[in-house]
Nucleic acid binder design. Structure first.
Length: 244
DNA sequence: AAATGCTAATCC
DNA sequence: GGATTAGCATTT
């Protein structure tokens, strides 16, 4: 890696992440490189002691170093022939905790709260704003997913109930069909009996049957003739014959 | 090491 | 504010 490339990189880092332009950066410039350890150190400081980190950053600024937070540039962008890589640093657990706590209180972020949080966390207020924006998006997604799975289980139980009811209807139709067939069968038997006996046609098909109310049994009955009794309740149909 | 997940940051 | 990108971590 050439020196100028390192410089270019530093320029980019400071461009996107002015807060990274601190003590260590000089060492990098001087080619001592192996930056990862030093970076890790600063990262640790920023992660676990955001206040101290913020303070350090503030000192650097007041010492006159040109660390103006310029507006961030985008992603992989071709500048001349160079491909610019965007850097990204995760927030520390502590920072996230405080942000979460704050988000729990109120999803919206007014200027005052933003500034306060930013200084407490040692972050750019813009970062805080972005965090809240993203957090709201995540929250909304979660809500949508919750609503979706709620509707899904609701739909599933409805489908099951529908199936159960359809089965019940089928069963009842079958029962009804059997009962009607039984009636037909018995009526036909009776009819042929009567005609073979050559006896006068009884009142089976007329409206003159005597009507009984067997309320005590929750049934209704009709006397068909001397030894046949037609009973119907809401479950099934019976023909009761008794010997004389 | 490819796939996947998460999320900070960017763009519109 | 929504959609998207891309860096980083974790999982497979």
């Amino acid at each position: 890696m050439t020196g100028s490339k390192v410089d270019d990189q530093m320029e980019l880092i400071s461009h996107f992440y002015p807060q990274n332009l601190l003590p260590i950066s000089t060492r990098r410039r001087e080619g001592i490189m192996a930056s990862s350890k030093v970076d890790d150190q600063m990262e640790l400081i920023s992660h676990f002691y955001p206040h101290i980190y913020a303070q350090l950053a503030q000192e650097q600024v007041s010492l006159g170093e040109t660390v103006k937070p310029r507006r961030r540039r985008k992603k992989n962008k071709v500048e001349g022939s160079e491909v610019v890589m965007r850097k990204r640093k995760l927030l520390s657990e502590e920072q996230v905790n405080l942000l979460e706590q704050s988000f729990g209180d109120e999803h919206k972020l007014e200027m005052e709260r933003k500034a306060k949080l930013a200084s407490e966390l040692g972050l750019d207020p813009h970062q805080v704003a972005v965090w809240f924006q993203n957090r709201r998006a995540r929250w909304k997604n979660k809500k949508i997913e919750e609503e979706y799975s709620k509707l899904k289980t609701q739909h599933e139980t409805t489908i099951i109930e529908k199936y159960r009811l359809e089965t019940e209807v089928l069963k009842m139709k079958e029962q009804l069909c059997e009962a009607e067939m039984e009636i037909q069968k018995l009526l036909l038997e009776r009819k042929s009996d009567i005609s073979s006996n050559n006896s006068p046609i009884s009142s089976i098909f007329s409206m003159e049957q005597q009507h009984f109310d067997l309320g005590e049994f929750g049934m209704e009955g009709k006397l068909m003739d001397d030894n046949m009794f037609f009973v119907a309740d809401n479950q099934s149909t019976y023909i009761t014959l008794w010997d004389n």
